[in-house]
Design a protein around this nucleic acid. Structure first.
Lengths: 152, 152
DNA sequence: CTTGAAGTTAAAGTCAACTTCAAGTCAAGT
DNA sequence: ACTTGACTTGAAGTTGACTTTAACTTCAAG
């Protein structure tokens, strides 16, 4: 049974984040007689999954939904992971495509000095990138530079 | 001289956003005797620039800094725009590269069923993508699906 | 048994970029 | 002059994902 600071160190998440995730129902912890958290080692795998999902841009709501399909202590089966990684790949592809469209628009602007807009692609990305982003918008690419993990 | 609702309609920004931008020093407006805002037409160009910059992922702080180099009523010169668009292109390239690295990591995971992490690239993006993102992290790709503009 | 590091909670704070609200004022057409 | 839609302000609220704080409790080593 791991203490919160051990899990924090090994997962790379702050202890406060671990408590937050517990409140949010993403992870669970047993308690000592005195009420302190004691984690099973499997939580590290779960946290690794959460980190990966966050890196791909899932919200915690989405992560929670995905985790519900992956029963508590079960290691994802090959089938689970195939489905999930396909989904994530699509997300990433969509985000990449949107950024590329934006970049191409920018390229077409370089040297035209336009920014007079109506014609300029750069402030009309709705036209260029419509339907590229999953609808609901706001894709978040979180810090890729965070401290790493050493989980599992 | 344009009213706030005209500028809102033509720029695609909400009136509340225009007021916010004014408080933040991004745009300016003259006032009528009664204190209502009256905008010059050049504000539309400025707002188009702001929208484009936001689409590329600049924060308002960054936009403000950029705008300071582009005196109030001056149309950006070709040199201005060349510099700026080169900078923006780099940003987009970096973001695209980071996402591609993430996707490639994901591809390398498909079928390996790993997520046992320590070895898995997906939760160790720090290793894969270090220095790709401008430092300070958190790149935000805003809704590309927002209503368009009809400025200028 | 004592001590100090590590743990606990609820509640409030943070950040960015806005939006919403309440309570009132202005502008323009009839 | 009246009406009504547009406008004004400051302050507070929103969202997501946490962090921080305050006030206290528990655990493990010595």
């Amino acid at each position: 049974m791991l203490t919160v600071s051990e899990v924090a160190r090994r997962s790379g998440f702050a202890a406060s984040a671990l408590r937050y995730y517990e409140r949010e129902g993403l992870v669970r912890a047993a308690r000592t007689g005195g009420g302190q958290r004691r984690y099973q080692r499997t939580v590290l795998r779960r946290l690794a999954f959460i980190r990966a999902a966050r890196n791909v841009g899932l919200t915690l709501d989405e992560v929670r939904a995905e985790l519900k399909r992956l029963p508590e202590s079960r290691t994802p089966t090959k089938a689970d992971w195939t489905r999930i990684s396909r989904d994530w790949r699509h997300r990433l592809d969509d985000q990449i495509a949107a950024l590329q469209a934006l970049r191409d628009g920018l390229d077409s602007c370089i040297g035209c000095g336009c920014l007079s807009l109506r014609s300029c692609a750069m402030s009309n990305p709705a036209d260029m990138a419509a339907s590229l982003v999953p609808s609901g918008g706001a894709v978040f690419l979180p810090a890729l530079l965070r401290r790493g993990t050493d989980a599992d």
